[in-house]
Simulated scan of single mutants.
Amino acid sequence: MTAVDLPAVPRVLIAEADPWSRDLLKQVLLNVRCDARLDVCADGQHAATLLGEKTYDLILADWELPGVDGLSLLRSVRQKRRSLPFILLSSRNDSASVREALPLAPTAYLTRPLNMESLTQRLQDLLLNEGESVYCEIPPLAPGMTLPTFLERRREVCDGAPLRVDVKAAVQRSLGPEGLDLKQLEGQVHSDPQITAVLIAAANSAGYHGTPVQTLSEALHKLVPGQSMNLILGLALKHNVVLGDPGLVAYAERHWQLSQDSADYARRLARMLELDHERCYSACILHRLGDLALLRCLEDWRQGGGALDDQTIGESLDAFGAAYGSALRTRWRLPLELRQLIAGIYSLEGGVYSREALVVNLAVQMARLTEHEGLEELAGSKTARLLKVGLPELTRVRKT
C-alpha cells in the first residue's frame, strides 16, 4: 500500500491471542489512525473467517495464534493479495523462523517484546500520507441520554482509572545502561492503581502460567521488562487518561491519597504482624479503582456535552463506584485471592476472614481518620481486637 492508493478510511485486522497485547496493538494503531475501521480477534480461525468476509488494508497477526497460526494466515493472504500489507508478530527470533517467514513476504516481521517506536513508524508509513495527520472529534452524547444510563452502559466496557503517574517520565527514569531497571520502575509506578491493576492482570493472562500474581513486584518479574514497559507506555495512549475537569481532578486526588495512605498503613501493620505486606499493600492501592474509573467516565460524559457539578460527581460515585470496581476486577480477571482481600476492606460481616483481610480493613479505617481524630476508638474496634493490635501499635504505625 503506497500513498497514492491509501483508502480514505483504512480497515485493519488485528489477530492476537493475549488480551493485553491485543489491547496494546489496538491503542498504538488508533493513536496513528483514530478513524480506522478496526476488527480485533483472539484466534486464527476467527481471523480467517473475517478475511473471507471483508477486504482489509492492513493485517497485524501473531504467529502463535491458536487454531490457524499467523504464518498460515499470511500464506493464505499471499495466495490472493501479494501486496496486502501484513505485519507478522512473533516471539521467535531465531534464524530458522525468520527464514521460514521471509519467502511469504511479510511487510514486517516484528519480534517480542515489540519496539513501540518502530511499530508506530511502520504504521504511520502504511496508514498516513507524508505529512498527513488525522483528527477525530469526540462524538456528542445521544439525544435524551441521561447520566445514570450512560454510566450503566459504560460500566462493563470502561478502560479503568486515569493515570496518577507520568508514565513516559517514569520509564525514562528507570532506563539504565543495561536496560530497564525493574526495581527502579516499581518505585516509580507503585502508587498508581491503574498501572498496578493492568500489570497484575497481564501477568495472569493466558500467556503466563504458574502461581497467580497478586502484587506489582511479582507482575514486573513475571512479564519480561520490554513487555512491562510497552504495557505501561500503552496506557498513556488511551483516551482521557489525564482528567481535565478541575472537579474531577479534585475527587481523583482524594481517592489516590486515600489509596496511598491505606496501602502504607497496611504494609506497616502487616510487617509488624509478620504477614504478607506486599499483598496487603496491593489490595489497598487497588481498592478505589472503581471510583477512579467512574471519574474517567464522567470526563467522557463532560466532553460529550453533559453537565457536571460537584453534587453530580458525588452522587455518581455513591451510586456506581463500587459496581465499577467489582466489574473491573472481574473483567480483568484479577486473582480471586486478591479480590477477596479487597472485599475484606469493605465488609467483615459473617464468615471467617484471614489476618491479611483484617489488616487491610483496619488500614483503610486508619486512612479515613482526619489528623485531628484519635486512634482510641479504632483501637477498641472488633478488627483491632481480632488482630490483637492496641493503641500503642496503631500509634507507632501512624507515626512510622
Results as ranks from 00 to 15, higher is better:
273 L>S: 01
284 C>K: 01
255 H>N: 02
304 G>A: 00
269 L>C: 13
298 L>E: 04
253 E>A: 10
342 I>N: 03
284 C>H: 04
272 M>H: 14
315 E>Q: 10
260 Q>T: 09
318 D>Y: 14
289 L>K: 08
322 A>C: 08
339 R>G: 07
281 Y>C: 06
288 R>M: 09
289 L>P: 00
344 G>L: 01
304 G>S: 01
328 L>C: 10
311 Q>W: 12
304 G>C: 06
275 L>Y: 11
343 A>V: 01
263 A>Q: 05
327 A>M: 10
298 L>I: 08
299 E>C: 02
274 E>D: 04
277 H>I: 10
318 D>L: 14
270 A>T: 09
326 S>L: 15
317 L>D: 06
294 L>P: 03
257 Q>C: 15
302 R>G: 02
287 H>L: 10
338 L>V: 03
277 H>D: 11
277 H>F: 15
322 A>Q: 15
331 R>K: 06
264 D>H: 10
251 Y>Q: 12
247 G>Q: 07
319 A>E: 13
291 D>K: 04
332 W>K: 06
335 P>M: 08
345 I>Y: 09
342 I>E: 05
293 A>V: 00
274 E>K: 13
296 R>D: 02
267 R>M: 14
325 G>F: 14
344 G>N: 07
271 R>C: 07
281 Y>A: 14
323 A>K: 02
277 H>E: 12
280 C>Q: 11
280 C>H: 13
324 Y>I: 00
313 I>L: 11
249 V>F: 03
261 D>S: 14
297 C>N: 02
311 Q>M: 05
312 T>E: 09
269 L>T: 00
322 A>H: 12
